[in-house]
């Protein structure tokens, strides 16, 4: 009994350290952000109630940034996921080339964003006059080049873990390559698929840095992301709007997370 209690205390202590770090570095700043989102400005110490939320949710450019974030998220993440899936299957089928492919896929992560952005600028001749189609294509190809690799590596590792006997048995039963991939491999690695999708979404949220390096503070309208809005408001010293936008995004993400939990929970129950 005593040993059990001691173990519990040890576990609690081990949990407390990271939990307090998480609380201090994430939860407290988030609470401060919520607090500042109700301030009238960073300078007069007054309260604005929900005025800042009304302002940003009726602001043309905040809404444009949000729309573009969702649009580019869909147009970049889904093709990147499909491509990473294809690459991982190809690597499994050609094990000899896999080691070389892994290096090539990992390389974009090691190249500084500034260098990549300069290269893309030269290739696509990017400036304020670039047609929207070309600008979008530049963004799309940069995302694929940079972010497909890590997702493909995650999927490749998952595919390698699958038991060969099971797949061979399926092949003996007359299962073709397509059916083997879509009917067996993918369902077996669905958790890793979800992980690589989450990874791609995270990369997409961080992709603002690359968009900024390509187009500066004011990109073509099609490229204007909500992060542009927040960054520009920060430079203009409108901390209250940055906080309101940050709090709104946090709520949106939390809502999506709860929705995803609800949907997956129901599906698990059905299974």
């Amino acid at each position: 009994m005593k040993r059990k209690t001691r173990l519990r205390i040890k576990l609690l202590a081990m949990w407390l350290l990271p939990a307090s770090g998480f609380f201090a570095l994430y939860v407290v700043p988030l609470l401060w952000t919520f607090r500042y989102s109700f301030a009238s400005s960073a300078f007069d110490g007054g309260q604005a109630g929900f005025h800042n939320y009304v302002y940003i949710w009726t602001n043309e450019y905040f809404l444009l940034g949000l729309r573009n974030l969702l649009k580019t998220g869909l147009t970049c993440c889904l093709p990147a996921f499909a491509l990473s899936l294809l690459l991982s299957v190809l690597m499994i089928r050609h094990e000899a080339a896999a080691a070389f492919a892994l290096v090539v896929l990992f390389l974009p992560l090691l190249i500084p964003s500034v260098c990549a952005a300069e290269l893309w600028k030269k290739v696509y001749k990017i400036d304020v006059l670039t047609p929207p189609g070309t600008a979008l294509m530049a963004l799309f190809t940069l995302f694929l080049w940079k972010c497909t690799g890590p997702a493909a590596i995650v999927l490749y590792a998952a595919l390698r873990k699958l038991e060969k006997e099971v797949l061979e048995a399926a092949m003996l039963d007359g299962c073709g390559e397509a059916r083997l991939t879509f009917g067996m491999r993918l369902p077996l690695i669905r958790r890793e698929c979800a992980l690589s999708l989450v990874l791609l979404l995270l990369y997409h949220l961080r992709f603002y840095k690359d968009v900024y390096l390509l187009y500066g503070l004011y990109p073509p309208k099609e490229m204007y992301l909500v992060q542009h809005y927040m960054n520009n408001q920060y430079l203009k010293m409108n901390a209250q709007y940055v906080s309101a936008a940050g709090a709104s995004l946090a709520c949106l993400c939390l809502g999506l997370f709860i929705l995803a939990l609800f949907v997956t929970g129901r599906r698990e129950k059905k299974c």
Partner: peptide, 20 residues
Amino acid sequence: ISPERFAAVSQQLADMALGE
């Protein structure tokens, strides 16, 4: 580019910068 396009692009940038 034409002067009209120059003016339109400048106006669009200014609208963004001032309308945020």
